[in-house]
Design a binder for these strands. Structure first.
Length: 429
RNA sequence: GUGGAUGUAGCUCAACUGGUCAGAGCGCCAGACUGUGGAUCUGGAGGUUGUGGGUUCGAUUCCCAUCAUCCACCCCA
């Protein structure tokens, strides 16, 4: 607290050591599942040319209009901290000619995203997403595949309650008709709409569909929805997605009024909601984007993907009764303790020996402290074992190992220590 | 961008309606118990009470502003 204001800017957080195991828990699951489903990782920079998002995500979207971190570099380039992951991956796909590789191409990413929103529960200005994309697969099986991966991730992570909402927002063939019909319907009832929605009527009438204002919801009850206007292609594609989801045993609910905030979506869109999150209740979402690659200057290439917010998954898990998240209480590693001068001479040797054998080892760095003080250090630093070196044992070619959990201790011949510890480590407890 | 609540040591909190009110517990550091930790005891560091103004003889306690946090709107992850 205090004088110069070096505190963190609003909406960003430090992740302290005791929280790291939770992140590793999720990250391990992500890597394992992505591999199992044969997705390969891609890492793109955290900033891009601002234009990528303006064009890719959409000039009129909230993300671009009011949430991007914009800055100029010394060359005068307009850059932006990435607010989402799909456009950058599409950009990389085009830039490196990934369309020349065997298609479809299945990619995933994990990393920080940045949005200048007002922070609240479940919403930070820097947050982390796990996302997956499939390029070059136009059929409904690809849509189902990414949704399946998302569902598997949530299940494997241990998220108990979530609901998948599914919709199709149509393609360039059918959407214009829908928009026209919707506009006509809404214009007739504009007086019943909230001020925001009267604006939306001009810019993006679809957004009126999921307004939470009670009066708007009334109006929208009978309004035409995308599902009423799907062309035959979209219709059969969407039916195909649903059939695949049945086969994959991923439960979902149709929500014809689900509208997403990014302009690039075509056809299938979906969102995963959690009842434990408060106002920001979306764990993840995604959909199909068949024109994004083209928009980024590549050849016409269909795409579909999702992104899931890792902070929100952690939040949901923390609020469950039976949280599977790892605790930070475990003792681990070996504290090398010197009982006397004789032991002190061997301390460095043992430290190196243990580490060379792959066993985590540490010591007290203060010079010449007594055995009691060193053990106290070992305990407070949550070490699992104390390796005690003293003239008494060393004289017989032995060292003493103390279990800091139970208090039991044994003397072992020096040559057997490594094997004994390894066995303890793998042999459970 | 809008609204509401909150803001005292690293953490959790205390200080009657403004007058020894700057404290406690935990944690941290040092030490004792003299080859054995998690117990106990002793000592110590650490706050100009978010910041800046104002009212007052006097403010942590009242008023204003500002910053930050939290929750909600909006939007989404």
């Amino acid at each position: 607290m205090g004088k110069p204001d070096f505190r963190l800017p609003p909406g960003v957080k430090d992740i302290l050591p005791e929280e790291i195991p939770k992140w590793h828990y999720l990250e391990d699951i992500i890597r394992e599942l992505a591999k199992l489903h044969r997705f390969r990782e891609i890492r793109t920079p955290i900033f891009e040319m601002a234009l990528l998002f303006q064009r890719g995500v959409g000039e009129a979207t909230d993300i671009v209009v009011k949430e991007m971190y914009l800055f100029k570099d010394r060359g005068g380039r307009e850059l932006a901290l990435r607010p989402e992951g799909t456009a950058p991956v599409a950009r990389a796909y085009v830039e490196h000619g990934l369309h020349t590789r065997p298609q479809p191409l299945k990619l995933y990413y994990v990393g920080p995203m940045f949005r200048h929103d007002r922070p609240q529960m479940g919403r930070n200005r820097q947050f982390h997403q796990f996302g997956a994309e499939i390029f070059g697969a136009p059929g409904p099986a690809a849509d189902a595949e990414v949704i399946f991966l998302l569902a598997q991730f949530l299940r494997r992570a241990g998220v108990r309650e979530w609901e998948l909402e599914l919709n199709s927002v149509g393609c360039p063939v059918c959407r214009p008709q829908l928009v026209a019909a919707l506009k006509e319907y809404l214009e007739g009832r504009a007086s019943h709409l909230c001020p925001d929605c009267r604006q939306r009527l001009e810019r993006n009438p679809l957004r009126v569909l999921d307004c939470k204002e009670e009066s708007c919801r009334q109006v929208v009850q009978q309004a035409p929805t995308p599902l009423d206007y799907l062309c035959s292609r979209c219709e059969s594609h969407f039916r195909g997605v649903q059939e695949e989801l049945y086969s994959l045993e991923v439960p979902f609910r149709l929500n014809p009024r689900l509208v997403r905030g990014l302009d690039y979506y075509t056809g299938t869109t979906f969102e995963v909601l959690s009842p434990r999150l408060g106002a920001q209740n979306a764990l993840g979402g995604g959909g199909r984007y068949d024109y994004l690659v083209e928009e980024c200057g590549g050849p016409p290439t269909p795409g579909v993907g999702f992104a899931v917010g890792l902070e929100r998954v952690l939040l949901a898990l923390e609020r469950q009764e039976d949280s599977p998240l790892p605790k930070d209480e475990v003792r681990w590693g070996i504290f090398v303790v010197a009982a006397d001068e004789e032991g002190r001479k061997r301390q460095a040797y043992w430290l190196k020996l243990l580490r060379s054998a792959g066993l985590p080892a540490d010591r007290d760095y203060a010079s010449g402290r007594g055995l009691r003080a060193q053990l106290k250090q070992a305990d407070r630093h949550r070490a699992r074992w104390a390796l005690i070196l003293g003239a008494e044992e060393l004289g017989r070619g032995m060292v003493r190992l103390r279990d800091l959990e139970s208090g039991e201790q044994v003397d072992l011949p020096e040559a057997e220590v490594i094997a004994w510890l390894r066995q303890k480590e793998t042999g459970g407890s």
